[in-house]
Simulated scan of single mutants.
Amino acid sequence: MTEAILDPDLPIIDPHHHLWDLRPLLPAFPEPRHPFLEAIAGAAYYTFDQLHADTASGHNVLATVFMECGAFYDAGRSEPFRPVGEVEFVNGVAAQGASGAYGAWRPCAAIVGHADLTRGAAAGEVLDALQAASSRFVGIRHSGAWDADPEVLGPPFHAPEGLFGEARFREGFAELGRRGLTFDAWVLEPQLGDVIALARAFPDQPIVLDHCGTPLGIASYRGKLPERFAHWRESIRALAACENVTVKLGGLAMAFCGMPEEGPAAGLDSQALARLWQPYVETCIEAFGPARAMFESNYPVDRWGATYPVLWNAFKRLAAGASETEKRDLFAGTAARVYGLEALLALRLRNGNLDKPVRAR
């Protein structure tokens, strides 16, 4: 699907993407693969060149935020410290972009890594190592995604039920605040109450809800998006009442959500995608406000539903009625505040936003 780029000068900070090489791992998963694995099989290798090609495909992406994905762990370290290798790898990618050889584009300008918070206070040692590995490291994600139906998540993901409420997890979670770090929460829609409880228990800890809370349209939830919408909306509004929480607007093209059900890159245009996602995105913006919401690509996972240019066109259609100030928050400002990129954004805007990225050839 090819489209003309809408509002090509609008500054964007993409606050959620991955880098990985999953090619050695895919043969280990039996056929037929879970739809999530089918979605990423076509992007099993996604590093600097692919990221550059996508972010330089027409939209004005100033910078990006890397989100942990269990890639490039250091096998030479003890188990708790292996995630430091991921941050070290990504910091190298960030340094490659910061060289200026690719224009003013700054990939992985902020890095969200991983630490096992179920280690309790001992997780602080890993957080210290992650901070030492890169000045770009700003926080962690420890996925809590779980469902009683094992077909929902498939083989790659199975956090314990009720992880965010466990005492050892919360002991480790408290270590984030002592270091001024953010926390990204990935859960599924039926688990949003877990995030609400966590946010209320730690009202000073910045928490980012990933992927609009991941509405489910897969496995035993297939066809149930309409009947579960009101429950999802109630949870989103309750979570928005916690002022320490922001929300990422995206991830809806994941196979888990079924919007669209067909993939990968189902061929829907940005208008069709915007219609699918409008109830969820508008509800989140209404609940959180533009200053606590940010559009995300979730690439390459969301390649299931759309190419990178079409994805951002859909977001721009969804924000068409917003003011210029609101658009600046939704597409860049909120991400900059949450992930410590305000100086970078201010510099680009002060320069008149003329030093655009070098376009991929």
Rank of each mutant, 00 (worst) to 15 (best):
E324Y: 10
G180K: 02
A159K: 14
A98Y: 05
P11N: 08
D149G: 03
E86I: 06
G333K: 06
A306D: 10
I140W: 09
L344P: 04
A201Y: 02
R237Y: 14
R228A: 10
L209F: 06
F36D: 09
W304R: 03
L19M: 14
E189Q: 14
R119Q: 15
S78Y: 05
E261W: 08
L225Y: 06
I285D: 09
P80G: 11
V87P: 03
A201F: 01
H158Q: 15
A287P: 01
G76K: 09
N313S: 05
C257G: 15
G217H: 08
A241N: 08
E3N: 10
V61M: 07
S323W: 05
D14S: 13
F29L: 09
G223H: 06
A197M: 02
V138G: 02
A41Q: 14
E342S: 15
A159G: 14
S323E: 04
C212S: 00
L249W: 03
P35T: 08
T334D: 12
A28S: 08
W312R: 11
M259T: 01
T64S: 11
R359D: 04
V281E: 05
D210Y: 03
L347H: 03
L163K: 12
V301L: 13
D194V: 03
R179E: 06
G305Q: 03
R337D: 11
G165V: 01
S57P: 07
P156A: 08
R141S: 06
S220T: 04
A104T: 12
G139A: 07
S134A: 00
R168E: 09
A71E: 13
K224G: 05
A39K: 13
L268C: 02
A43I: 08
G177K: 10
A129G: 07
Y73P: 01
P15Y: 07
A274G: 01
L188T: 09
T182S: 12
F48R: 11
K224P: 01
L249D: 04
F137E: 15
K356T: 15
A219V: 00
R170V: 13
S135Q: 09
P32M: 13
L330R: 10
W20R: 02
P300C: 04
V245I: 02
D355S: 12
F48G: 09
L25D: 15
